[in-house]
């Protein structure tokens, strides 16, 4: 069983991995994957903020079996989940745009190597 802190550390490690892929890899698709990993690490971070380490966490939905006070004490924070959903949608938009650009770049330059795509300089 992992403690709360180590979850955060793992999350930051995931983000570091994304940054590594973004900086060190020259392949366009790998760069895109790096960006997506960074995005997801932040999303995971937001989810972790709403997580309750103590006690049993339940989904933030009220029904007949669970009273309002018990729900407030036990349920995970729903706001970060709503925020993450929005941020995932935005991530989907950017990912689609990145994929489209990657296809178009390949059409024009016949390569996925970012170091060969260098017409703009100075």
């Amino acid at each position: 069983m992992l403690s709360h802190t180590s979850l955060y550390i793992l999350d930051i490690a995931l983000m570091g991995m994304g940054i590594y892929a973004l900086i060190a890899k020259r392949h366009i698709i790998k760069k895109i994957i790096g960006v997506v990993i960074i995005e997801y690490a932040i999303n995971l971070f937001l989810i972790l903020i709403g997580y309750r380490a103590e006690g049993v966490a339940v989904a933030p939905i009220q029904d007949a079996e669970i009273g309002a006070t018990e729900l407030a004490a036990k349920a995970v924070d729903p706001l970060p989940q709503a925020l993450v959903l929005t941020s995932i949608v935005i991530g989907l938009g950017t990912l689609a745009l990145m994929a489209a650009l990657a296809i178009k770049l390949y059409e024009k330059y016949k390569t996925f190597d970012m170091s060969e795509i260098n017409r703009l300089r100075g």
Partner: peptide, 25 residues
């Protein structure tokens, strides 16, 4: 040129937005 510029802008812009989101979080 447009595609190359757009891709660079997209990658760096997304990183920037992610940083803002980290700040919000």
């Amino acid at each position: 040129e447009e595609l190359e510029a757009s891709f660079k802008y997209l990658i760096l812009g997304t990183v920037a937005s992610t940083m803002v989101l980290l700040g919000v979080a």
